[in-house]
Design a protein around this nucleic acid. Structure first.
Lengths: 237, 237
DNA sequence: ACCTGAACACCGTTCAAGT
DNA sequence: ACCTGAACACCGTTCAAGT
């Protein structure tokens, strides 16, 4: 249905004849770079979801043959790694607060907003991911705050996994919504809240409507994050 | 390489001649049912990972044409929904303890063990999921314990999402490991811990080795779960 | 009613060739 | 050095046909 979108730029079918009327020396053909590929891929996923990302679609977007991409990226797995590291470069790592756990809170919330901006990117963690420089810097910053708060290295590593796992998981479950349009990536709705058998699932009938109709996901994330941080603080004493 | 595995049962090439020597009335052709399809799909994913699940491969495993599956399952999305609900039926919902939060802890740990048994199944939550009866029963049980602990419906719904999001997220990040064989689904290693630039990421250099070489994932999960539950308890007073 | 076979519109990726 | 074109071995899914 949207298979012509790659040709919309019109950079492909330039005139063949008309000698003397060509463009002066305009670089019609922008050189393909790894950065251009990754940026186009992220934009594609931001717009239409991770499911539509393919070398062929991406190549069309770049007005290039699918095989041209292989000159700059080894395979699709590496492309996903590069995309993840590219968006992780947007995280603000400057410590915004002298109190380590408060600075950490701000950092994690920034990561949360990142995955809110780039929906579908959190799903990449579902596969096996090779971390790049930006990913390493984010981990390092989180560990830095945890160590500064007084945690021993082993406890800091465990806390990082808890916090980051919670963040990634929240972005997968937080998008499962019933009947709200455009909730699922493919627009698929899950209308399970309508006509619930109250006899079989009485508690769901009571509290179920707050599962998805409550406060927005980002706010719910912040509440759960505070649970984890409070637990961390309590465990330190 | 393993493309012949579907024919190993030998149910396909029965003798055509030899009249009078046929099997008496043995039902050589086991009828295809939705249950058989879902069980085979779960077994396939348990063995080789979610990536190898295809209607064609599944059909080979069942000694059937790919199209035969469509008689019992609408499409691949529905198959994933059915698989998830099938394994969620293995969760023990009986309250093992009079104290609600202790019973809840046991329940969540049982879900964790479930995703440990069926690796790759937690990844299904990355897409849009329609919940089945078993999935609803699990949510209902979690909400029941939270309500019994004294949480108001709205707070119980929020706590469910925190706990379940943490569980699913932990099963995705917890499998990202460097260089350990068979860690990633495709066996892909991520050797980032070797030769880390200590100047750029000093905290990672200090605590990074505990990220993956520490206690096993299940134990780390339990520690993080207690953080959440302690935070819940503290927030109730 | 249930399964098959051929076909369509896609994939990632390899190989040999073009400029 | 960088891009193209054709081809291979896969996908999910539709359609028309078999029994």
């Amino acid at each position: 249905m949207s298979e012509t979108s790659g040709r919309r730029q019109g950079g492909r079918n330039r005139p063949t004849a008309w000698v003397g009327f060509e463009e002066p020396a305009a670089p019609e053909r922008v050189p393909l770079t790894r950065r251009r590929i990754v940026e186009a891929a992220v934009a594609l996923v931001d717009g239409d979801g991770l499911a539509v990302l393919s070398f062929r679609r991406l190549a069309a977007e770049l007005a290039v043959t699918p095989m041209a991409i292989y000159g700059h990226v080894a395979d699709k797995d590496q492309l996903l790694d590069l995309m993840l590291d590219y968006v992780l470069g947007e995280v603000d790592l400057s410590p915004a607060h002298p109190e380590p756990l408060v600075a950490l809170r701000a950092l994690i919330l920034d990561v949360d907003r990142l995955f809110e901006r780039h929906r579908g990117m959190a799903r990449i963690y579902g596969g096996s991911v090779r971390l790049g420089p930006n990913g390493l810097r984010v981990i390092d910053a989180v560990l830095g705050h945890l160590l500064a708060a007084g945690l021993r290295p082993k406890a800091a590593a465990a806390a990082f996994l808890d916090l980051y796992g919670y963040t990634v998981g929240h972005h997968q479950l937080g998008r499962v919504a019933p009947e709200s349009p455009g909730a699922g990536e493919g627009g698929k709705a899950s209308p399970f809240l309508s006509a619930l058998p109250a006899v079989e699932v009485p508690h769901l009938a009571r509290a179920g409507r707050y599962l998805f109709s409550g406060p927005p996901r980002a706010e719910r994330f912040e509440r759960g994050l505070d649970l984890l941080l409070d637990g961390l603080r309590a465990a330190m004493d």
